[in-house]
């Protein structure tokens, strides 16, 4: 699905990612954990195509194609989806118009027919249920006046409509109360299937109680310093990142 090799990234001359290697196969769920400032969100944003980040070395292949050469919209059309850590508010653009434009751009890219208003409405109504959101919300402007939890649910809802091959969740759990967290996790779990992969970037182990990963990677200072199964997350929850950063982790896990 996605193959990241020796990825180096800088923002304004400061190197943030210092050689990331990561291989995600279809159907796998990978969690990326790490302390603040380790480069987790940078990785998510670089993959989505944010232009402020400069890739200085390395390669990323997505389904055999060079991801780094594609503009952001093409990445999305090829099946990559980033659930933002801080979804932006866009006054004047309704959720419905926004999603319809996105969905039809992706469908056109795949050589499928554009959805008309009726097909679209039928489909989104069903997907809204996945994140327990009301239909009224389609007519509201994108994220405007949404609570933190609603914004994150909107991200998962968009993912459900656009049906990507790879979903990247950038700290989707941060700031959510337990009820909202369960709704978000439940939505993601329903979208899991043998072809669809996820990279879940999180600071807390809590989310991984609800979305159980196949692999856990620990990112620190721009490098993956430890990889393991889901038990690695439990170890981090118990011992914190410091223990691992001090070099004790290898012995403990």
């Amino acid at each position: 699905m996605i193959s990241i090799k020796n990825l180096h990234t800088s923002v304004e001359e400061t190197e943030i990612l210092k050689g990331i290697d990561l291989e995600v196969k279809p159907g796998e769920v990978h969690a990326i954990m790490g302390p603040n400032g380790s480069g987790k969100s940078t990785l998510a944003n670089v993959l989505a195509g944010r232009e402020e980040y400069e890739v200085t070395a390395g390669s990323v292949e997505f389904n055999g194609r060079n991801l780094l050469e594609m503009p952001a919209e093409e990445r999305a059309r090829e099946g990559l989806f980033l659930a933002f850590q801080y979804p932006v508010e866009i006054p004047g653009v309704s959720n419905a118009n926004f999603l319809k434009a996105a969905l039809n751009a992706i469908r056109q890219h795949r050589g499928e027919e554009a959805f008309d208003a009726m097909d679209f409405l039928t489909m989104v109504k069903e997907r809204l249920q996945l994140v327990e959101m009301d239909q009224k919300f389609l007519q509201r402007a994108v994220n405007v006046g949404f609570s933190g939890g609603e914004k994150k649910r909107n991200e998962i809802f968009q993912m459900a409509v656009l049906e990507p091959q790879l979903g990247i969740l950038d700290e989707t759990d941060s700031g959510l109360d337990i009820d909202a967290l369960k709704i978000v996790a439940n939505g993601v779990n329903k979208l899991r299937n043998p072809q669809r992969s996820f990279i879940i970037v999180t600071h807390y182990q809590r989310l991984l109680d609800y979305i159980v990963p196949d692999f856990v990677h620990v990112l620190a200072d721009g490098r993956i310093i430890k990889s393991g199964g889901k038990e690695l997350a439990l170890y981090l929850e118990k011992n914190g990142y410091d223990d691992l950063l001090n070099g004790n982790g290898k012995a403990a896990v």
Binding site: A72, V88, I90, F98, A102, A105
Partner: peptide
């Protein structure tokens, strides 16, 4: 704003048009 729309597959020209109209 522009990046958010593009990250969902909407082309740059169309994304700009949507934001202008908004």
């Amino acid at each position: 704003h522009l990046f958010y729309l593009r990250s969902r597959g909407i082309g740059e020209e169309m994304a700009k048009a949507m934001l202008h109209i908004a």
